[in-house]
Structures are given as structure tokens and as C-alpha cells.
Design a protein around this nucleic acid. Structure first.
Lengths: 340, 340
DNA sequence: TATATTTGTTCAATCGATTGAACAAAAATA
DNA sequence: TATTTTTGTTCAATCGATTGAACAAATATA
């Protein structure tokens, strides 16, 4: 009763009295095959519910048409939006993607890389886990297949990259806070060993200097930027001798944690302390007050990353590296907008 | 300079002066191969950084060792936790998973199914999209490969299934609310065409009846259970002539939306209106007040689903269907706990 | 010593699709 | 009519690993 057999070109060939190779060529629109046979073959293929055996053609062609995508976590609007857009572009070009998440863990990331290499993907698009400092596994990818990075990338890997201008983002944030008459601006930061967070810190410091504002070392606190990190650090800032009048958080989730603590302590946001997050996660517009944040253009990043990947596939040994840096956009919401 | 060639058993054979078949057998611990050769071969394999070509062995064996997992969305703790646990169990058994999301859309789901079938997965584990009512594509999966469902499943598909007792969950919720002296209990529900939501509604009605409570039809409102749905429906309930004193929401995100509206209207939770969600998403313990909810044992569901799948793979033509139903657990938090 | 058994390896076919070369038939050109 | 060109198809090798059968050598048994 169960009829799980799949039909092959052989079956089609048998039905039409042709050879498998003629069928294959007909399906692939080979110029030497007559229109008549092509039509007959394609009809028979539909009749028999023929699905090409991906494994065999991939083996023969030396190309799986699968692309591995590694992201730190998927329950983030930024990453899932990027992946969605990568998928959209790659699907149009005949690729299918396999999405995996590292959960920000180095060990998991290594395991995922091994899996992807094992199933012979044609290339890997990745954004590195927070934990990752050892680049060995990324070197391994490079030695076996193509690699394109987005958002979280390391320059020394010397691969194609798409991201935003993190340094400039901090300037946008600080400039805006200054315009709101803030002058004691703290920064709940990500870890410096990750390039994007280092850049945000550098931008933050330079922007403060630009405005002749004090830059206190204990106003820059690095963390994993989880919700609980935001809460903990905000509490710490509130307890310090000199309270900031604005906090710039390098991630929205941590910013939410910080906001929770502020509200629990009956601190008026933005009047007493203004708050700005990073990434434009959807919930930032839903909180009370809504949270100002930086839009990273996840859709654009996804699209451009996929295009960079396709470019690389077309030209695997091109020496020049493609680095695409997008302009950040500050989204001003209630948490930093002191209307006069 | 770039050295992206991968070594094959041929290379190993050449190095050791053996034939490829001897190498293959040595690597697979064939009994007829001598210990000495096995050791030599395995050593050479490491030396040459040999990775078996997954495509060729999959083709030969007629088995890809890939399992497709389709979930409605990944930015939900429930689903990502289930997938994580499925992956854990399947990895131990030599399978790799390909995770895809339908985004609750029927069209996307169909597309993902086609992709998975195309790349010849050995089976598919899925939880159906909210939108899905046409089971044609799931029938297609059944006709081509193995299928196991969890959480969102349809009985008429007649496949292995793992989920919780949704009917009983509603009883737990209502019983608890009654114990808190609530007697006007509304239900923000999911759509009836999805079995789990239908069961929750049925349990809710029966539990009300059990306690001789009025069951008003306009206190059961179906939706997609997104945040905005929760907000909209809560507003609607507040505006109605007879306000409920408790609201049972069939999803945590919608419950969060409902809570936001309650707080915005300065309604005391749980004193004036008690609130209970569903799924035990992590944020439910972080809100102020924290939200009571139903724990679906996502880790267990993942583990058991994977095991059901493995069982099915071992015995593809077994006629009896495995239906595993777990006990729900009510987690009482501030939003429904009126301490005496 | 002759024969049977065990052991270690090679041979050759296979999975399904692809592809350049070969070939025959039809059409075009000289 | 003879020769070249075009067209439509088949042949055979290939991708890399697997596997049953075959074979030779070593060992055991009669």
C-alpha cells in the first residue's frame, strides 16, 4: 500500500523508449535534443511525478547547491530578518539554505561548521558567536569552501563582509543625546574582542571627546548583552556615586532589561535618564516608553550578503575582498526624546 | 595558493598501495580487513584530512541522514527548545537536521516542504503553521518519506505525534482561577481549525460547566495570538458591558499584549483581573507582574519526538501510530495569585 | 601430502544523473 | 550523385563510496 518509490530518469526513458542520457539532456534543455522529445520527456516527468535525485546530480556536478548559514541565535529579529533575505535572494539563484544557530557558543559553532562541511555545502555565510575568539574553524571553512561574513566578522579572516558602520552609529547616538542636553552618557557595551562592539565603543569615546564630555572608564561596562546583563549593569550604574543622565546600550534586549530596572526604580525616562538601544528589534516600539534604537537595515544586509556570496561563487579565486559597509540610521523614540 | 581540494579514499589508497574498496572497508570496520591495515588506513585518513563524501555515500546507501524540521517560527522559546532537543537526540544517532520555518504561512510551508523533499531528507518532523488547513502537502510528505508531527498536528493525517494534553491544560487553568475566586473567566483563544486550540477551548468550556459557571460565547475570542491580537482583544473585553475577572490566553505573547493593555488602563492584576498565558515563554517570568502560564515541557516534547522518529525509521511500515501525550503543568505566578 | 577453512584483498557492479565523444540518419551543399 | 553539415540519439565514462563475489595466500584439518 505504501508507495514510497521515487521515479528516476530511467523510468522516464523506459516509458518513452529512450536512453537515460537522452532524458537527462531533454530535461536540461540540451540544444541537440529535438523540441518534440523535450516536450514528451517533460510531460512524462510530470506524469511520473519525477523529482531529480539531488544527491546524484550534486555528486556528478561537484556542487550541492546548498549554502550553510550560521547565526548566533534565531530569536532575534535582526538575524532572522537577515536570514530571510539571504534565503530570498539565494533561492532565486537555485540555492537552498541550511540555517543553523550557534547559540553564541563557540563549541556549538564548531560543531555546526563540521556538520555543514560534512554535508558538502557549496559555501557558508556566517555571523560569529559572541564567544568566538579562536578563528581556527573559520580558517577551516576557508580551506574547504567559500565563506562570507556579515555583522559579526573579523578582518583578519580576510573574507567578503557586509555590515554597518558601527563607529558612526555611536556618533549618531551620542550626537542625539547631546542635543537632548545629556552630558553624562554611560555605555552598556558588548565585549571588545568582537569587532562591532569594539567599534561602537571607539565611536562612543571619540564622540564624547568631540563634544568635550567626560569619558569615565567605569561608565563603559562590557557584557554579553542579555536581558539580565542589562538589568544587572543598570542596577550597578544606579548605585554608583555619580549617576549618568543617559545610557547607550549596544543591544536592544539589554536595553529592555535596563528599562525595566529604571521603571522599577521610578526613574523618569527620558527626563532623568535617557535610553538608547541598538538593532531596532520590534519590541522596542512596543515598550512603555518606546525605546530609541539604531536601525541596522537587516533586509539590506541580507540581500547584499547573498549577492556578495553569489559574486564569490562566480569567481572563487578573485583576490580582492568585498567589504560592504552600510549607513546606520538612528530611530528616535520616547526613551530619548525630551520634547521641549 | 588556495588549496580547496578534498581528499578521497582513492588518495588514501594510493598512499598505502591499496585499492579504494579496501580503504572503504577499513574505515567502516569490515571484519575481513586486518587490524594492521585498519590502523594504517585510519592514520592516513587523518594525515590527509580525509572527510567522507557525504553525497556519494548517501547516494549509494539511499540514505541522506538528513532530517528536515519545519516549525512555525523560531523566535519562540517553545519551538526553539523543542528543535534543540530533537537535534540533540538525532545527532547522537548519526542524523543531521535542517531546520526551516514556515512563519505561520501556508505558502512558505509548502515551499519548505518541496525544498526538503528535493534534497532527499530521510524524513520530516513538523509542527504545522497556523494558516494550514489544506493537508495536501503533508500527504505529499507521507507519500515520499517519513513524517512525525509535534504540538500542531492533525489526527486525520494519521502519523506519529507528540504533544501535551491541551484539554486537561484548560482544566488546570480554570480550576486554579476558580480557586482564586474568579467566576467570570474569558478565553482569548487560537483558531478552532487547529486541533490544539480547539482542545483548549473544549477544555475551557467543560471546566466552566464543571464549576457551574456561565459560559458566554462572546468571552471566547479566536485570533492568531500575536501580541497585537492580545492587545486588541483585551481592549475589546474591557469595553464590553460585563467585564471578566479573569482572562485565560492560549498563548504567552498574546497574554503579554493583554497585560500591557491592563496596565495601561490601571487595572490591578490579579486583583481586578487575573491573567494566565500558555507556553511558559521565558519573558513571562520577567514581566511586572509575572505571568502565570502552562508549561508544555518543550524539552521532553523534543526528546520524545526525536525518539518517535527514530522508531519510525527503524520500522517504516509499522501500521500502528504512536501518539504520545504529555501532562501539562500549571505555573502559578503573580498575575493570577491573589495571596490571601 | 591433499583438502578444507580462514583471512586479506581486489574486482566489478551499483546508486542516479551528467556529459563529451561517437554514430547514424537526415538535410544541405557542391 | 558525392560530400559535407546538421540534427537527434546512444555509448561509455564519471562523480566517490559501498558491497557481494571472486580470488589468492595463509593456516588448519584430515
Amino acid at each position: 500500500m505504501e508507495n514510497k518509490k521515487k521515479s528516476t530518469i530511467k523510468d522516464i526513458a523506459a516509458v518513452l523508449g529512450l536512453t537515460p542520457s537522452a532524458v537527462s539532456k531533454a530535461l536540461n534543455d540540451h540544444p541537440r535534443i529535438s523540441e518534440k522529445t523535450k516536450i514528451a520527456v517533460k510531460e512524462a516527468a510530470i506524469q511520473l511525478d519525477y523529482q531529480p535525485n539531488y544527491l546524484s546530480s550534486a555528486l556528478r556536478k561537484g556542487k550541492s547547491n546548498l549554502v550553510g548559514v550560521i547565526i548566533p541565535r534565531v530569536n532575534s529579529h535582526f538575524f532572522s530578518s537577515v536570514v530571510e533575505n539571504i534565503e530570498k535572494v539565494l533561492n532565486l539563484n537555485g540555492y537552498n539554505i541550511i540555517m543553523t544557530q550557534s547559540n553564541e557558543l563557540y563549541a556549538k559553532e564548531c560543531q555546526e561548521i563540521d556538520t555543514l562541511l560534512k554535508i558538502q555545502v557549496d559555501g557558508i555565510i556566517a555571523s560569529m558567536a559572541n564567544e568566538t575568539t579562536n578563528l581556527e574553524y573559520y580558517q577551516k571553512i576557508k580551506s574547504k569552501t567559500e565563506l562570507v561574513l556579515f555583522d559579526r566578522g573579523e578582518e583578519e579572516l580576510n573574507v567578503d563582509y557586509v555590515g554597518i558602520d558601527d563607529y558612526k552609529s555611536s556618533h549618531l547616538v551620542v550626537d542625539h543625546l547631546v542635543s537632548q542636553n545629556c552630558n553624562r552618557i554611560a555605555h552598556i557595551a558588548g565585549f571588545q574582542h568582537i569587532r562591532i562592539y569594539k567599534e561602537r565603543i571607539r565611536g562612543y569615546k571619540d564622540a564624547l571627546e568631540k563634544w568635550n564630555l567626560e569619558s569615565k572608564e567605569n561608565w563603559i561596562i562590557e557584557s554579553n548583552l542579555r536581558l539580565e546583563d542589562g538589568r544587572r549593569i543598570m542596577q550597578q550604574l544606579l548605585g554608583s556615586s555619580e549617576r549618568p543622565d543617559a545610557v547607550y546600550v549596544a543591544g536592544d534586549i539589554a536595553a529592555l532589561g535596563a528599562l525595566q530596572v529604571l521603571l522599577e526604580n521610578n526613574i523618569k525616562v527620558p527626563e532623568e535618564i535617557a535610553l538608547i538601544g541598538f538593532s531596532d528589534e520590534p519590541f522596542t516600539s512596543l515598550t512603555q516608553p518606546s525605546i530609541s534604537t539604531v536601525n541596522q537595515h537587516s533586509d539590506q544586509i541580507g540581500k547584499l550578503t547573498a549577492e556578495a556570496f553569489l559574486e564569490r561563487m562566480k569567481n572563487p579565486k578573485k583576490k580582492t575582498i568585498n567589504r560592504i559597509i552600510l549607513e546606520p540610521e538612528l530611530i528616535i523614540r520616547q526613551s530619548s526624546d525630551k520634547k521641549k
